[in-house]
Design a protein around this nucleic acid. Structure first.
Lengths: 328, 328
DNA sequence: ATGATCTCTGTAACGGGTTACATATTAAGA
DNA sequence: TCTTAATATGTAACCCGTTACAGAGATCAT
């Protein structure tokens, strides 16, 4: 690989002049510039970004932390973040944390050593104490980590209320909820929204809330149990689509007809919900938009360290499909 | 951020000695080592990887090129690659190429400037001419790019034959094929495998092969047309699961019963195939294993530039589900 | 003509590590 | 005791860019 010295020698100038040509700053004579440009082309010279990074203290890299890219919610998020960062000539680093604090901290340290310029994190574990002495800006996603951090989220509680109200509106008399693991903030908020609506109903039982732990098989099992113990249930709000699909499968296995005997609403709007039979009604999150806005916000923080903290809240949208339709 | 100089000053030694302690090489007196270690802890010193990279000419980063992480085949692959690279203290860079040669080349250049140590690529466009003058090793995935490149693939042609033969074995008399876009090597191989089996059959018509272009909606449309024009078709082999699911949806829309009137086999083994009704029989690829082996192979090339080229070929496995069962 | 300003280019320090080489001290072997 | 090898540490060059600073020639206004 050719270095700036090779170019300088060939063009008969100093490396400083080559650098000026490269960065298009300072004074450079037209002819000299031409000569340098030719030398660059001739040697197929490309500046070494590592050397640049060392001097600038910035790497032009940003990292995204997700629990697991295999979870169908995250690929679209990752795609959005990558699109934006790439457009701004940043390199995109992806980290699977498994929602494990130790892994998160290891990544954080390793990437700070690499001078990564900023982080977008989806985490239930990282608290302010781990984040306050960082030199790179952080944007939290999906789950708010702290008031001192910019973030992009949806209003989980309100959306859950809307989903539950929708089930009531289409005529459900007994509505259950499949919640996620209790360490995840968004799950708790969705549960809260559901409870806001149903807890004052005379029919409400605490056993109407069961945990599917964001797990497909687990959800099928607990749903079967739920529907067997409580055949009166005619509506289920699942805290995400993966579990919503599990509910559909459990009902299918039990011979419970959807939507006639049971209406199901999920949360997220992932592709899998479109391909089940019946297809899954869901509170769709603007996933791509969440990622894109987070990336933009992060870039602003990177370019202006005085950028004020901003907590962006995006709207979900009810997508009616066959798991609830044909009601009234 | 503390630098090695700060540590050296505090421990009253030269930076060389600190470096020796850090890298655990050369001679260092026990007491000195202790003193340096204390200074490091006291200052919470972490070496700057950019500076290290500059000297070594290596960045400890590897990159994965995929057409689009939103394509359900790739998250598992990405996860596998990330797991392995992370375990070896490499940083994982993800690039979405959209199967666009220009984007691929731009990424390749940008990342080489960043001294990325190796590449794993899923590409239909990158040919030897673009890759031969690279300084970092490349492992090709899914689609082989050149005999001069290590690669990890499955035997698409043979697997396609197996899938087609399976449809024959369960009693299908007229088998059609939904193929992918013709620029993708693996699609052509799968088509080839299908043709190997059916082209000598007296019933075979070239109109039994239609392109779904790896696209869900497109597949639904062409399948409806296919089944309408050829109601005699009782088996369909789709070149991937996304299209297999499209076939199921198209049949559902037409009122064609699966598996009684039509048997369907997909390819890939993605989660979506499990949740349709009926669930989709498929030639499952060992996706995680493909990614893991590719990552290992790449690391070997990185650590030993004389590592011989190796073309790993993994086996697919037929997963029988409800879209073909209950036949005989 | 003279000083001020602009244009052009080079020298050298710097960013933060690593390591070849030199030097000094100590230990071991003959 | 003398040689040789092992241990211990520092100096300085190097990796490859960027930029502050200085010096020189050209241009301009007075």
């Amino acid at each position: 690989m050719a270095t700036i010295k090779d170019v300088a020698k060939l063009a008969n100038v100093s490396t400083a002049t080559v650098s000026r040509v490269l960065n298009n700053n300072g004074y450079v004579n037209k002819d000299t510039k031409e000569r340098v440009t030719r030398a660059i082309r001739q040697l197929d010279y490309r500046p070494n970004d590592i050397a640049r990074s060392l001097f600038k203290g910035k790497s032009k890299m940003i990292a995204l932390f997700v629990p697991d890219i295999m979870n169908p919610f995250f690929p679209e998020l990752a795609r959005a973040v990558e699109d934006i960062t790439n457009k701004h000539n940043y390199t995109f680093v992806l980290c699977n944390t498994d929602d494990d604090l130790e892994k998160e901290i290891t990544y954080l340290n390793a990437l700070q050593q690499k001078s990564v310029d900023g982080f977008i994190i989806v985490s239930s574990n990282l608290k302010e104490d781990y984040l306050h002495n960082m030199n790179a800006p952080v944007v939290a996603l999906d789950r708010i980590v702290s008031k001192q951090l910019s973030s992009v989220t949806v209003n989980n509680r309100e959306s859950a209320r809307e989903a539950t109200n929708y089930l009531k509106a289409i005529g459900c008399k007994r509505i259950a909820h499949i919640c996620g693991p209790d360490y995840a903030m968004n799950t708790l908020e969705r549960l809260g929204g559901y409870l806001d609506i149903v807890k004052k109903e005379k029919w409400f039982l605490s056993s109407y809330v069961v945990s599917g732990e964001y797990n497909y098989e687990k959800t099928i099992a607990v749903t079967k149990e739920l529907l067997t113990n409580h055949p009166e249930i005619d509506g289920i709000f699942a805290a995400n689509d993966k579990m919503g699909v599990g509910v559909i499968k459990a009902a299918e296995a039990l011979g419970v007809k959807i939507p006639e005997e049971l209406a199901v609403v999920g949360f997220d709007g992932i592709a899998m919900g479109e391909t089940t039979t019946p297809s899954l009604t869901t509170m769709e999150q603007p996933i791509y938009d969440i990622g894109a806005q987070a990336a933009k916000l992060l870039l602003e923080h990177i370019h202006d360290s005085n950028r004020s903290i901003e907590q962006v809240n995006l709207k979900t949208k009810l997508i009616e499909r066959d798991s609830t339709r044909k009601r009234r």
